[in-house]
Amino acid sequence: MEKILEVKNLQTSFFTPEGEVRAVDGVSFDLYRGKTVGLVGESGCGKSVTSLSIMRLIASPPGKIVGGEILYHGKDLLKLPPPEMRKIRGNQISMIFQEPMTSLNPVFTIGNQIVEAIRLHQDLSKSASREKAIEMMKLVGIPAPDKRIDDYPHQLSGGMRQRIMIAMALSCDPEVLIADEPTTALDVTIQAQILDLLKGLQERTGLSILLITHDLGVVAEVADEVVVMYAGKVAERAPTRELFAHPMHPYTKGLLNSIPVLSHDPTGKKKKSRLEPIPGLVPNLLDLPVGCRFQERCRSVEARCKIVEPELLTAAPSHDVRCVLVGGQK
């Protein structure tokens, strides 16, 4: 398998009047051709900051990528001068955002916006770009694309707008697509359509996807590998089937137990009369406890958890966990 993107020990901080907030604190993972990595975690865990760091879209100040490497075909994106990065961004690596309403410019037609992206990166004439835009709209399943191309964003529904975002992101045939909560703002039936669309496109074009989401159901459906983040660090990392079959980190287990199970669950799981939530709240990144970051909410916390911060170690083949209670840790 060909490694397309390699994130190594990424560290991104925000410098606030209260101090340095280490939003992403040493995150590593690899993305292979035609595969999907799911980045999961709750709000504030650093998953969006990770994706924005890869695109080098962190607003500076107050943010700054303070360490690590992001290797795209072995080339470190963090060392590229801005014009070089601009050639890659939107062309080889593109991104779709959660909020399809605010990511489209309301005063331009959607055709205008897709054509802009195409002409910025490809040497195509106006009419050829328009043809290409219509083709992309057809690809993402928009009915009558030759008519809809002259519509403004407000004339489209949420699901349609998200399709336009995908069409725009894919218009330059990128190798990597970063999808930040692409279905969170959508209804379930539309979510199913969009996930189906992404899977189909991946099969046809060999696209690699970094999917950022808080929904473990979505991850189970589309990801090949899952990276669970907690308070800026990777808590657990494993192939999807392995992670769901043998979750090891107490946080991952807690997340899975927090989801209600259907009484007629098709996988035969028993319905819970009561959920088992993770107690407490996500810690303040400015005031982290000594030792494990999850200790205050962990059900199996021990004295040693409060002394040293555990390392991310391999507990089973291609299954890494950051917890002292899991085998292999000292």
Binding site: V188, T189, G217, A220, E221, R241, A245, L256, L262
Partner: peptide, 22 residues
């Protein structure tokens, strides 16, 4: 609607009813 619920179990393959349109 029920078939569209994402199930947090990667081993489960479902017959999804995809609705047309919005």
């Amino acid at each position: 609607l029920l078939s569209a619920i994402p199930i947090p179990d990667p081993t489960y393959k479902k017959d999804r009813i995809l609705l047309k349109g919005d």
